[in-house]
C-alpha cells in the first residue's frame, strides 16, 4: 500500500512539476490548488474520499497521493526553474535543443531537490497509510485503533513504537538517498 502510493505520487508529482515548468501560466494555480489540499486535515480528506472509493485501501492510497503531490511537484518545479543560468547558457551555446537542455541538464541538476520532495512525501504517505486503519485499510493503523478501543496498553505501545521506528527508518533511508544525490549532483544548490 505504502509503495504503491509512493510510486504513483512520484510519477504524477514529477509529471506535474515538469508540466508546470513548461507551462508557467499553470504553475501558480496548480501549486496553490495542491497547497489547499495539503491544509485539509488527513482524516477529513480520507472521509471525503469514502463516497467515491468505498472503504479500504483505495481511498487511503488516493489520499496519500493527493498529499504527496505538492512536495514532489513543487520541488520539481522549483528545481527545474532555478538551475543556474551559466549551465543553461553553456548548454545552449554547445547546441543542445530545448528538450535536451531540459532532460540532460535541468532535470539531473534538479534531482537533489526532487529527492527532498520525495522524502517529505515518504513521511506524508506513512502518516496517511497508518490512518487508513481507521477506514478498514488494515495494517498497523488498524492494530492501533484496536488497541485504543480495547484499551490494550501493550498493543498500543508496541505498535506505536514499531510505527514510529518504521517511519524514522524510512525517512532516514530517504534522507541518505537525498544527501547522496546532493553530493553527486548538487554542488550548486
Amino acid at each position: 500500500m505504502f509503495l504503491v502510493a509512493l510510486f504513483f505520487s512520484i510519477l504524477i508529482g514529477v509529471f506535474i512539476g515538469i508540466f508546470t515548468y513548461r507551462n508557467p501560466k499553470f504553475a501558480a494555480p496548480v501549486l496553490n490548488g495542491l497547497n489547499v489540499v495539503e491544509s485539509v486535515p488527513d482524516v477529513a480528506l480520507l472521509v471525503l474520499l469514502l463516497p467515491i472509493f468505498g472503504i479500504g485501501t483505495e481511498p487511503t492510497i488516493v489520499a496519500s497521493i493527493l498529499y504527496s503531490l505538492l512536495p514532489i511537484a513543487r520541488n520539481t518545479y522549483t528545481g527545474l526553474s532555478n538551475v543556474p543560468r551559466v549551465y543553461i547558457e553553456i548548454a545552449e551555446a554547445l547546441g543542445l535543443t530545448q528538450r535536451e537542455v531540459l532532460f540532460q541538464v535541468r532535470f539531473p541538476l534538479s534531482l537533489p531537490l526532487i529527492a527532498g520532495g520525495i522524502r517529505i512525501a515518504v513521511v506524508f504517505t506513512m502518516g496517511v497509510v497508518t490512518l487508513g486503519g481507521l477506514i478498514a485499510a488494515g495494517g498497523l493503523g488498524a492494530a492501533l485503533q484496536n488497541g485504543i478501543q480495547l484499551y490494550d496498553m501493550g498493543t498500543i505501545l508496541v505498535t506505536g513504537a514499531w510505527v514510529g521506528f518504521l517511519a524514522v527508518l524510512l525517512d532516514g533511508i530517504a534522507g541518505i538517498i537525498e544527501s547522496t544525490l546532493k553530493a553527486r549532483y548538487g554542488t550548486w544548490s
Binding site: V86, Y87, E89, I90, A91, E92, A93, L94, G95, L96, T97, V105, P108, L109, L111, R184, Y185, G186, T187, W188
Partner: peptide
C-alpha cells in the same frame, strides 16, 4: 538551424560551465 550552427562553433567562457552532474 541555430542548434546545428552552434554544434559547428566551439564556445568557451570564463566561468567554464562544466555540467556538475
Amino acid at each position: 538551424d541555430s542548434v546545428r550552427l552552434r554544434r559547428n562553433i566551439g564556445y568557451v567562457i570564463q566561468n567554464i560551465g562544466l555540467l556538475p552532474h
